[in-house]
């Protein structure tokens, strides 16, 4: 283990290698980013490393909705003006960001951090579903509708249907956002008007 430090790559190669591990970043872009960090001026590098540590140390998952939060509950779950009778189930935090940008939705969310995909080894127990049911009968205000906004592909369809089956005994209407989103497309990339319309045209599952 003593030799570890000597075996380490030079700082630029190390930063490049670490950046290249991020999704969507290839070797070339990683090098470009690393060089930009090298050339950066002022407090940028300090601010960047602080921010990176802060997302690790200060961010956690909201105890209610599993969304990213800097307190026990996220901003939306704390916001008294939001409609607590509607819950929108989504796969990832970025789907919430896309839906928020439409401005058409004022309810709360539930983030699964994944979608069902047996072929990739993702079953119900790999999703953050356990705290969804307690929200539906336990809360201070009754939930009147659950909207499932997973992407319209095989995995998203299965996830939506599974949730509908799970909630069927509770007799709370479960709807799915409609296919304004291109078939097989990803929610995250859907443009705002399409998403807005899809939300309005949601159908009962």
């Amino acid at each position: 283990m003593a030799a570890d430090k000597d075996a380490r790559l030079d700082p630029l190669a190390r930063l490049t290698g670490l950046l290249a591990r991020l999704p969507g970043i290839g070797e070339k872009s990683a090098l470009r980013l690393a060089l930009a960090v090298v050339r950066s001026e002022g407090e940028y590098v300090e601010a960047l490393s602080e921010a990176i540590l802060a997302v690790r140390d200060e961010l956690r998952l909201c105890e209610l909705c599993n969304d990213l939060a800097s307190a026990t509950r996220c901003e939306r779950c704390q916001d008294a003006r939001r409609d607590r009778s509607t819950i929108c189930v989504i796969a990832q935090p970025q789907d919430r960001m896309a839906l928020e940008r439409t401005g058409a939705y004022r309810g709360l969310y539930h983030v699964l951090h994944g979608v069902l995909d047996p072929l990739a080894g993702v079953g119900p127990s790999q999703l953050r579903l356990a705290n969804l049911l307690p929200r539906l009968h336990g809360g201070d205000e009754p939930v009147r509708e659950v909207i499932v906004a997973t992407s319209p592909n095989v995995e998203g369809d299965a996830t939506a249907l599974y949730i509908a089956k799970l909630l069927a005994p509770l007799e709370i209407p479960v709807s799915r956002i409609a296919s304004g989103v291109a078939v097989g497309g990803e929610l995250e990339y859907a443009d705002m008007t399409t998403l807005h319309r899809a939300l309005e045209d949601r159908r009962r599952l």
């Binding site: 069902l116 047996p118 369809d157 299965a158 249907l161 089956k165 799970l166």
Partner: peptide, 12 residues
């Protein structure tokens, strides 16, 4: 396997 899960894929 859990019934609802199997039913989900059968519906598909």
């Amino acid at each position: 396997p859990a019934r609802p899960l199997l039913e989900t894929y059968e519906a598909g």
